[in-house]
């Protein structure tokens, strides 16, 4: 009997399922990296993973701790300079999916990873945008993965680090942005998608065991649920085994690097 999935494992597995073998994916570190590599090791063996350090079509055996671990370069088809990565490959429009996480998100899937409180006198100084501001506008579409919590899913962001759907319908178009933006937010409790009319994030699927009440409690705005609300398919034994094996390999590899 396989040990049941934790909410974090469910989040990673649900995120992995959103990726296709034909995708060219710009990968953020952390949960996105786990999801992208799980997809590659299960249903999407042909997926092209790109990390902003310049590694193109990389096939790491263990999860990198940073976006530039040697493992990524050693297993990549080719490695380009960072200016080339951002100019030719990202701005050039070659990436189908960008995978982002964040500290805070609002109802239109705008993200904050910069600061909590005033910019000049921050309560909490976060790492900042890195590649995200341009990933958010140049990739064909954006998937976001974040654990729910009322401090993370907030009514109003103190700072917009990367653009989602702005203030609603037409925001991206007004700025001349032609890509689709966030099409899916995968959390530890549910999957949300922007409403086709209002662009507001709406729960479309609850993970097994997650309740509406728990989802509502983890969100700082009054969350809408789609009419055809479904239940996320539970993790298969294969998905769980591959993910756990990947994490275990990673843990052993990093412990030996001092």
């Amino acid at each position: 009997m396989v040990k049941p999935a934790t909410p974090t494992e469910m989040m990673t597995i649900a995120a992995a399922r959103a990726l296709k073998s034909s995708d060219v994916c710009f990968v953020g570190i952390g949960a996105p990296s786990a999801a992208c590599n799980l997809a590659r090791l299960t249903h999407a063996p042909g997926i092209t993973l790109i990390y902003e350090s310049g590694t193109i079509d990389t096939r790491p055996d263990v999860l990198p701790l940073s976006i530039g671990d040697g493992e990524l370069c050693d297993t990549a088809l080719t490695t380009v300079s960072v200016p080339e990565m951002f100019r030719y490959w990202l701005q050039g429009g070659r990436i189908t999916v960008g995978f982002l996480g964040g500290a805070q998100i609002d109802r239109f899937a705008n993200l904050n990873t910069t600061v909590v409180g005033a910019y000049d006198q921050p309560k909490v100084r976060l790492p900042g945008g890195g590649g995200a501001p341009e990933i958010a506008i140049h990739c064909g579409e954006i998937f976001i993965t974040m654990a729910m919590g009322s401090r993370a899913f907030v009514d109003k962001l103190p700072f917009i680090t990367s653009l989602g759907h702005g203030t609603g319908p037409g925001s991206r178009e007004k700025l001349g942005v032609k890509t689709r933006g966030p099409t899916r937010v995968i959390t530890d409790l549910c999957v949300m998608e922007p409403d086709p009319e209002t662009r507001e994030l709406t729960v479309t699927s609850l993970h097994p065991g997650a309740t509406r009440e728990a989802v509502e409690a983890g969100c700082g705005w009054t969350l809408r649920f789609a009419e055809g609300l479904s239940e996320t398919a539970p993790p298969t034994d294969e998905e769980l085994a591959v993910l756990r094996d990947l994490h275990e390999r990673t843990r052993r590899a990093h412990a030996g690097e001092a």
């Binding site: 960072v82 200016p83 990565m85 951002f86 501001p133 341009e134």
Partner: peptide
Amino acid sequence: SHAAMANAYEAGAANLPFAVFRGYKGV
């Protein structure tokens, strides 16, 4: 952002006064 910094280094190497790119929209 990373894109801005990468472009700014490249502009410096190319002896240009500034870098131009498509970015910083809606932020």
